[in-house]
């Protein structure tokens, strides 16, 4: 069975220089799409991936990553909307690249579908009432 997941990898300092992800392709036949990558000032790496592959390969791949000391989180936990703060203006719609943020044209309310969210964080600062929050 093919699976597709969006995951956040937290690399410890000593793993940042190693080609860990390319091994996923070579040894586990997992396709990946990098949604976001950054290295913090403490030289820890954060990599947001969309991975696609056979379920059993995916699980083996995760085991391999964990054996390298990489912490794995599902992505959906990372961007949240504070429903009380959102004024449903729609300013975020202009910048959201994955259409995770959309407007229902009948109610004219903004909805946030975290399955579609790539955690690019463009909406965070664009939201005038600061209703979008990032949690790593």
């Amino acid at each position: 069975m093919m699976v597709r997941h969006k995951i956040v990898l937290h690399f410890p300092h000593e793993q940042v220089g190693k080609p860990v992800v390319s091994k996923l392709v070579r040894d586990f036949d997992i396709d990946f799409n990098i949604l976001k990558a950054s290295i913090t000032p403490r030289e820890e790496g954060i990599l947001v991936l969309e991975v696609t592959g056979e379920q059993k390969n995916y699980l083996k791949g995760l085991e391999y990553l964990e054996s390298c000391g990489i912490k794995i989180q599902p992505l959906s936990q990372d961007i949240k909307r504070d429903e009380a703060k959102c004024t449903h203006c729609g300013a975020c719609i202009a910048v959201c690249p994955t259409e995770a943020l959309t407007i229902d044209r009948a109610t004219m309310e903004v909805s946030f579908d975290d399955d579609e969210c790539a955690a690019c964080e463009l909406c965070i600062k664009v939201c005038p009432p600061r209703a979008m929050e990032v949690h790593y």
Binding site: H88, C89, G90, A91, I93, A94, I103, R105, T107, M108
Partner: peptide, 25 residues
């Protein structure tokens, strides 16, 4: 504008509002 797409010089451009229509309603 409220449909979400307009055309400018033959190019389809997405629209976004700063005024909340649901709150206005």
């Amino acid at each position: 504008l409220k449909s979400g797409r307009i055309e400018i010089d033959g190019k389809e451009v997405m629209t976004a509002a700063l005024s909340s229509y649901s709150r206005a309603r």
